[in-house]
């Protein structure tokens, strides 16, 4: 088995005296798909923001191939880890192609323009995400699903080993949700990009990921493959619901159907 590329060691984050994450230990292996699930306020987004250096840990470390990401050169980290944030409001009126070109920022010296390799990567990113026909559109004029694909195109133009996605499907309708999930799967299968994503939809998590990480009360409650997690009563405890588990006949993945709230 490969050495994990991204590891989290005794990670805690606190804001004043409020604890946001507590003693998290995780290891992400190359080429796998991880889904982080958990109820609102359990620390999912904070964990993603720490993995992407947007929150400073109060204790513990996040290591990229054994080196603390907060100590590494920030452009070096950006060449290995790309992030799609949950909220992407920008005052830039940039068009899609220019946005995707910004993905090459970490690969350039500050004085140099786009190289032929950069352009190749940009075209590839646009084609892969199906954005080539929308390349000259302004970001502000795209639909939610198109905009999300534009941001993903930017992230993969970074040529990362690891792609972090924070609730990539939350504001999208069902067909756009599946479109994004299928795109993510394709990136994982064809490019070998390691995927770590926060998902709201437990069935998406079960269907598209190799491993589920359940966060609860600011710590890792349980981790395991989708069957292990769904068949145990973990989710029913964490989300405080009664649920039925069935099987997707085509894929053999578990399906989670929440029936009602458990009164405590």
């Amino acid at each position: 088995m490969d050495q994990p590329i991204l590891t989290v060691h005794h990670l805690s984050v606190a804001f004043r005296d409020r604890r946001i994450l507590h003693d998290i230990n995780l290891a992400f292996e190359k080429g796998k798909v991880y889904a982080i699930i958990g109820p609102n306020g359990c620390g999912k987004t904070s964990l993603m923001r720490t993995l992407s250096r947007n929150l400073k840990p109060s204790a513990g470390e996040v290591k990229l191939r054994g080196k603390n990401i907060f100590r590494l050169n920030t452009k070096y980290v950006a060449r290995h880890i790309a992030i799609l944030s949950q909220f992407n409001y920008t005052m830039s009126d940039v068009n899609v192609r220019t946005l995707v070109q910004y993905g090459r920022f970490a690969h350039r010296k500050w004085w140099s323009g786009n190289s032929a390799e950069d352009e190749e990567k940009v075209d590839w990113a646009l084609t892969t995400t199906g954005m080539q026909d929308l390349a000259n559109r302004k970001l502000a004029n795209l639909s939610g699903g198109e905009r999300q694909r534009a941001w993903i195109a930017m992230s993969i133009a970074q040529d990362p080993e690891i792609l972090l996605l924070d609730e990539p499907t939350t504001f999208l309708d069902i067909s756009h949700q599946l479109e994004i999930m299928e795109l993510v799967t394709k990136l994982n299968r064809e490019q070998g990009i390691t995927i770590v994503m926060v998902l709201h939809d437990i069935n998406h998590a079960a269907r598209y990921s190799d491993e589920l990480i359940v966060l609860h009360d600011q710590s890792v409650f349980r981790r395991g493959n989708p069957w292990e997690i769904l068949e145990s009563n973990v989710l029913e405890d964490v989300f405080r619901v009664q649920a039925d588990i069935s099987i997707d006949k085509e894929l053999g993945t578990p399906i989670f159907y929440a029936k009602k709230v458990v009164k405590s």
Binding site: R49, R79, S85, Y89, T90, F105, A106
Partner: peptide, 11 residues
């Protein structure tokens, strides 16, 4: 101007 989180992610 893409926003702090995005900018940091880009390096």
């Amino acid at each position: 101007i893409l926003g702090d989180d995005v900018a940091r992610g880009l390096g």
